[in-house]
């Protein structure tokens, strides 16, 4: 975070479509840094409610100042403890930190145990730290939307850093971390051999590699394997960022200052190299298309669309229409429906 601590005073920039007086209590509360307002807005967005989307419309133009860090790694790799230590370090430097801790939901019941806060209790009474636990709510693709929306709220609320912590399995999780500006991938000793480091997936999205639990005896081997991986592709990285490899022990507190320094160094590099603009564009493309896909699938399930959908399906079954044309007609009729609904308002 290269800029100085952010002032609590928000710019009175005019927000499209609303004067400050018309701002909802929720928006005003978020800008006043009221934890209850921030929390309620995140709930509304998590449930994809219109009041949440309306508030986000007002807040979105005020964001773009926090540094968004995605931190990911295998279950049990010590992510939550590491995030708590990192937050402690950043607080000592006078920065404010928001943490979104994502845990998986049960594929059977949809319920979830969100236990990341257990490791973060030291920050419970600090106004400069906001922690929110989120469940993946099934892998329906809505996870990245809700999580990134929550990050937008916390950004607009004025936190210097927003850290998104997820278990690094599955495409949805990788999508989330790719919306972050700096991706930290946490490895631990004892999870497979060096062939694992050659596989595609999580390791290749890292901007910073961390080997946590460095107090463990086999940590050197994991470090060596990752170093090998980095000599293969780290320096040949076309963007010119040399991926650092940091050894940390969240328990002993070692390596944390170095991690915080490297996150800031990466933030500076992103801006100076022009990579930030490129990433923001990629993230915006991913976000808008994901939301559009969500909208389409919601619309296909809506009763208003049901009739047209069913008749198209019948035509496909009767072979009077091919599936590609049917799908195209569906999307065209869907956009007509949206337009006419808007006009009627």
């Amino acid at each position: 975070m290269p800029a100085g601590p952010r002032s609590k005073v928000m710019p009175s920039a005019s927000v499209p479509g609303s004067s400050p007086r018309e701002r909802s209590d929720l928006v005003a509360g978020v800008l006043d840094r009221k934890p209850s307002a921030t929390a309620r807005l995140i709930t509304a967005l998590e449930n994809n409610r219109e009041d949440g989307r309306a508030a986000l419309r007002e807040l979105y133009p005020l964001g773009g100042r926090a540094h968004i860090v995605g931190l990911t790694g295998a279950p049990g790799s010590g992510k939550s403890t590491l995030v708590a230590s990192l937050a402690r370090c950043l607080r000592k430097r006078g920065r404010t930190v928001a943490i979104i801790a994502v845990d998986p939901s049960s594929s059977l019941s949809g319920g979830a145990i969100l236990g990341d806060r257990i490791r973060m209790q030291e920050h419970a009474l600090d106004d400069g730290v906001f922690v929110r636990s989120m469940s993946t709510r099934g892998a329906l693709g809505g996870l990245s939307r809700a999580t990134v929306d929550a990050a937008c709220v916390l950004d607009a609320a004025g936190f210097d850093y927003v850290i998104i912590e997820t278990v690094g399995v599955g495409q949805a999780e990788i999508d989330i971390v790719r919306c972050a500006q700096t991706v930290v991938v946490v490895s631990v000793p004892g999870l497979g051999d060096d062939i694992q480091t050659l596989k595609a997936g999580l390791l290749e999205v890292a901007d910073i590699h961390v080997v946590n639990k460095a107090d463990r005896p086999d940590a050197d081997k994991t470090l060596a394997e990752l170093r090998m991986l980095l000599t293969l592709d780290g320096s040949s990285n076309s963007t010119g960022w040399r991926i650092p490899l940091i050894s940390t022990s969240a328990l002993a507190g070692s390596g944390i200052e170095e991690l915080a320094d490297d996150i800031d160094r990466h933030a500076t590099w992103l801006r100076e190299s022009g990579e930030l603009a490129r990433r923001e564009e990629a993230a915006a493309i991913a976000r808008v298309s994901a939301i559009a896909r969500d909208l389409i699938s919601t619309r296909l399930g809506s009763p208003a669309e049901r009739g047209g959908f069913v008749s198209l399906v019948h035509e496909v079954v009767d072979r009077t229409l091919d599936p590609h044309t049917a799908a195209q007609r569906l999307i065209v009729s869907g956009s007509d429906l949206t337009r006419s609904t808007e006009e009627r308002r």
Binding site: G111, R117, I118, S135
Partner: peptide
């Protein structure tokens, strides 16, 4: 916590 989870709720446990 487990019973609530199995009923589809999101349970935050703080230790």
């Amino acid at each position: 916590a487990r019973a609530l989870r199995d009923a589809g709720m999101e349970v935050i446990y703080t230790g």
